[in-house]
Design a protein around this nucleic acid. Structure first.
Length: 310
DNA sequence: AAAAGCTGCAACCGCTCCCAC
DNA sequence: CGTGGGAGCGGTTGCAGCTTT
């Protein structure tokens, strides 16, 4: 597009940061706050000059400064291995939002998106691969014995989650383009645009739509919006329809909708979700017994969506 | 003991989104 | 309304440390 580069890569330093550079960056951010990353290297250097320090300042791209600060130098970053609770949360959240690492990180205090991304790409994916390999071996063995089709619980689980998530997104998108999502998703789930899931006025709401209106969904929505934009957004429900996957700011998301769900019901739904994730956690730790096919969904009486995996 | 292979993580790259003009 | 620039995000890479042979 002919856009000018954000920095001169021939002049600016790349590669690992030195302790001196770290200190320059930390000193500057602590004194002036983060933001304006493009000017930060120059300003940080000038501050040093005024203080009569010898070094010439940060010879780094502002982008690199932002990355170093947010992923490594920020004082509230938690170091060390992920706890089982964090692991569980990552599985849950990834099932809902996919590779939206920043959104997942927003739910895990002290963890950065980069850290979670690395954790996913190394640990979780590795476990998934191992599960698939084990399933292939198991399937071959069973086939040689004339047994039935075997399956990898982990692989099936991921496919199920992903499919369900995509379906929920699709339904949300459809709903956002037609009528009030709040009414459709929370009150009765009887919208015709979600007939595949609900199938009738008496059918229970889709679990993801219900989840969306629980505290988890609320938390996501909060993290997805900047404070500034929240101030500017009108309180009514006439927002333009937007893709759910892009913003997680579901149109028509207002308090009247939330009022249709009692606090107790919301807590119950959240617990159902957590219980389901607890199954996942055991599964990823080598329990290759029977795989529960969306027990939470079954509890809600909605099974038709997911039977294709059987 | 040394070389080869593997793993995990920090950092970079390129793209998209958002906002100011 | 269109355009340019800044900020942020996700994907990818490179390297240091560890393990295996």
């Amino acid at each position: 597009m002919g856009r000018t580069p954000c920095c001169d890569s021939k002049v600016l330093k790349k590669g690992p940061w030195t302790p001196d550079e770290d200190k320059l960056l930390v000193d500057y951010v602590q004194a002036n706050g983060s933001g304006n990353w493009r000017l930060l290297p120059k300003l940080a250097g000038e501050a040093r000059v005024r203080d009569r320090w010898v070094r010439a300042g940060l010879n780094r791209c502002g982008k690199s400064c932002r990355l170093r600060w947010t992923n490594y130098l920020r004082p509230d970053i938690k170091r060390g291995p992920f706890t089982p609770e964090e692991h569980k949360s990552i599985l849950q959240l990834h099932a809902i939002v996919g590779n939206k690492w920043s959104m997942i990180a927003a739910q895990l205090p002290g963890r950065t998106d980069n850290e979670i991304k690395n954790y996913w790409n190394t640990n979780v994916k590795k476990q998934l691969r191992q599960g698939q390999a084990a399933a292939v071996g198991e399937q071959a063995a069973l086939a040689s014995l004339g047994g039935g089709a075997a399956s990898c619980p982990a692989a099936r689980h991921m496919a199920q989650w992903e499919t369900a998530r995509l379906e929920a997104e699709a339904r949300l998108s459809l709903l956002s383009g037609t009528t009030s999502v709040a009414t459709a998703s929370v009150a009765a789930s009887s919208s015709s645009s979600s007939t595949a899931a609900a199938g009738g006025a008496e059918a229970p709401p889709d679990i993801y739509l219900r989840l969306w209106n629980s505290e988890v969904g609320d938390s996501f929505r909060k993290s997805a919006r900047s404070a500034a934009r929240e101030d500017q957004e009108p309180a009514n429900a006439s927002d333009e329809a937007a893709p759910v996957s892009a913003t997680f700011a579901r149109p028509g998301d207002d308090s009247s909708a939330a009022s249709n769900v009692t606090a107790a019901a919301a807590a119950d739904e959240y617990q159902v979700f957590l219980d389901l994730a607890a199954e996942d956690f055991e599964l990823f730790h080598g329990r290759h017994g029977g795989f529960p096919l969306f027990p939470a969904v079954d509890m809600l009486g909605e099974t038709s969506l997911y039977t294709a995996f059987d």
